[in-house]
Design a binder for these strands. Structure first.
Lengths: 199, 199
DNA sequence: AGTGTGGGCCAACAAGTGTTGACTGCGGAT
DNA sequence: ATCCGCAGTCAACACTTGTTGGCCCACACT
């Protein structure tokens, strides 16, 4: 792109652009798809490499191991919205809507969820996403600091349950729900878990 | 041939008691444990047979295949309570409590959930449990027959989400919740999903 | 006694897994 | 033109998986 000539002048380009970047991202895309569709064990390196039209040994050279590939494929950023800009009474709906957005934008979250159920590394990945990206947002909304973790956990239970039944197990009635229905049903639930007085 | 040479004591005991029944149930118990702990692919027949202190080939002879073993191991009965005996306003809490009970009574539900995420047969098993055991109960509580499926689906999303975060992924704040806290938080949610007017 | 049904063990198979190493050839730097 | 680094290929390794068939022995029946 930027003239292959400026190879030695990698001054401000961060990590020097490698000739194999196309293959790398092809592998990562295929990996996300396979992990999301099949889970960790059934997403074989051979299948991923086949999807990316590349030799399996290249996957090893680039990412070291299957675990390394998974770690590189799902470096997940939830892009949580700035809830301080949202009216206190609508934060529940806003969060549910945001989660629906990112869940349908790409397959990374589905991949993390599927893998987290059978793979230790996946479990830890999901736990760290919760700890580092979900809990801090709850901290901004939630009155009592001591209850932040529990309230965030309740929200995670509701939202992951929706994702599980809608995108993984695909219970027909849950798949059939329209976006507005989900917002109307789950929004108040999340709102209550975050802001209602402790029962 | 029907020459099953009726054993001396099997007069009217239904399916004649076999000499290998001890081994069979040992295998089934080990299978439930492994499926619950490891999911479908990582729960190997060899490991299950090892736990049951029996040869792997016996598993094949008794259950035909790994799929057959799974089907036999998790013939799940939710033992749903008779909700018509429960006051309309407490049915939510009653259902949440019941699910906590059976989830902690044995590992069958955890096994079904773990397997359902990566295995097609497991997915169908979970779907049929929902269709045949959860939806009918919702039908008794729910006013509008057209909304029964959707409302049951919402309850499943909340309850499976709790199970996922508490027993599978084990998010620390969710694991730390006491039974009464869960009842107090989730009871009203399930209650609303079942009986509140459509939003 | 003998006998045969069937529970149990052993060894092996074919297929598929992650992973490794040696080899080829293109392209940019010298 | 020459060299060197690195993307890419091929083949193989060591291992595990589900699954199969043959064999041995215990026991209940005649």
């Amino acid at each position: 792109m930027t003239g292959t000539s400026s190879r030695s002048t990698d001054a401000a380009h961060g990590p020097a652009a490698r000739r194999s970047d196309a293959s790398r991202s092809a592998i990562l895309a295929a990996a996300r798809e396979r992990f999301a569709a099949d889970g960790y064990e059934r997403a074989t390196i051979r299948a991923i490499a086949g999807d990316a039209r590349i030799d399996p040994s290249m996957v090893m050279r680039y990412f070291g191991s299957k675990d390394g590939l998974f770690a590189a494929a799902v470096a997940l950023d939830l892009r949580m919205p700035d809830v301080s800009q949202v009216p206190r009474t609508e934060v529940g709906q806003a969060l549910v809507g945001h989660f629906l957005d990112i869940w349908e934008a790409n397959e990374e979250l589905t991949a993390v969820l599927r893998v987290a159920v059978t793979n230790q590394a996946g479990t830890e990945r999901l736990q760290s996403i919760f700890r580092e990206q979900v809990v801090p947002v709850a901290r901004l909304v939630c009155p009592d600091p001591e209850q932040v973790a529990a309230r965030a956990g309740l929200c995670a239970a509701q939202l992951l349950g929706l994702a599980l039944t809608r995108y993984v197990v695909r219970l027909p009635p849950v798949v059939a729900l329209a976006r507005e229905e989900i917002l109307a049903w789950l929004g108040p639930t999340v709102q209550r878990y975050l802001t209602a007085p402790s029962p």
